[in-house]
Amino acid sequence: MADTIPPLSVTEQKGIRIVEFTNNKILDEANIASIADTLTALIDENENPRLLLDFGTVDHLSSAALGMLININNKVRQKNGQLRLANIKPQIYEVFVITKLNKLFKILPTRAEALTNFTAH
């Protein structure tokens, strides 16, 4: 049976879209495409989108997931928006370090720190 649980849960706080992953694995390409679609819609609906991705539930991710995140980062930048990543488990953070993507993304230890890291429009 098809998985009917949306891969993301989205809330808003002070104009910042907070996105949580509902699955602990971001490996499967169909799942990654679905996440990309939802994030792209969130970027498209605002002039200067502010997105916080909370990785608290994520235990596994693939290079395809990293590619999707880079694409989302590029889209946010094109719209002069801001993207923050937070709450990444050490094992997952290591993947960002190995690929040097910790230099590309703004990664904060906690969601609270990420929320205060956004600059006002």
């Binding site: 693939s62 290079s63 395809a64 990293l66 590619g67 999707m68 880079i70 694409n71 590029n74 993947v95 190995i98 690929t99 040097k100 993507l101 230099k103 590309l104």
Partner: peptide, 21 residues
């Protein structure tokens, strides 16, 4: 090399690096 400055924004090419790491 996906870690090279000019390749950091590319969306693919990291699979081998991760396997080897």
């Amino acid at each position: 090399d996906p870690c090279a400055e000019e390749n950091l924004l590319k969306c693919s090419g990291r699979g081998l690096l991760l396997m080897e790491a």
